[in-house]
């Protein structure tokens, strides 16, 4: 059912996504667009060596994209490149219908059967991976 996408936990995560806004000054700033729907994510990172010391995200997108950015806000600080790759792989896992390692990603399980919405969830994580390319 489509409406199972919009469970309370996911709506809350989208509404109260931690670390919304811009981070200035920053070491890395990445903007990614989804060309199909116009969703846009901007991610600012401050680094401490190879690890993310602080971040902020700004989303112009749907609830799924906002909630996914909320996961980034909750879990990305402290990660290095390998940690980011592991988090992104966990998102791929939940979108392919498997159990995620990170419990917070369970809210996205109903998205697995909505292929046209996968990119909405993936965009913030793609921005996160993109922002770590230099590291």
């Amino acid at each position: 059912m489509s409406d199972s996408l919009y469970q309370d936990a996911l709506l809350k995560l989208a509404r109260e996504a931690p670390r919304q806004g811009r981070l200035e000054p920053n070491d890395v700033s990445v903007r990614l667009d989804n060309p199909l729907c116009g969703d846009r994510v901007r991610l600012d990172l401050r680094m401490s060596g190879p690890k993310i010391a602080e971040l902020a995200h700004e989303v112009r997108g749907c609830v799924l994209c906002q909630a996914a950015a909320g996961i980034v806000g909750l879990h990305a600080v402290g990660l290095d490149r390998a940690g980011v790759a592991a988090l992104a792989a966990d998102v791929d896992r939940v979108l392919s219908g498997q159990d995620p390692v990170c419990d917070a990603l369970r809210s996205f399980a109903p998205v697995a059967s909505h292929r046209s919405r996968h990119d909405c969830v993936l965009l913030p994580f793609q921005a996160l991976k993109e922002s770590m390319k230099g590291g």
Binding site: S2, L36, C37, C62, V63
Partner: peptide
């Protein structure tokens, strides 16, 4: 509300609508 979310809820009501920028980004 994002048009994708609106269109998703409409789908639950059996309504097929388009949500997005309609390949008209400058107009948006």
């Amino acid at each position: 509300a994002h048009p994708h979310d609106v269109a998703q809820i409409l789908d639950r009501h059996g309504v097929a609508c388009r949500g997005g920028h309609h390949c008209a980004e400058p107009l948006m």
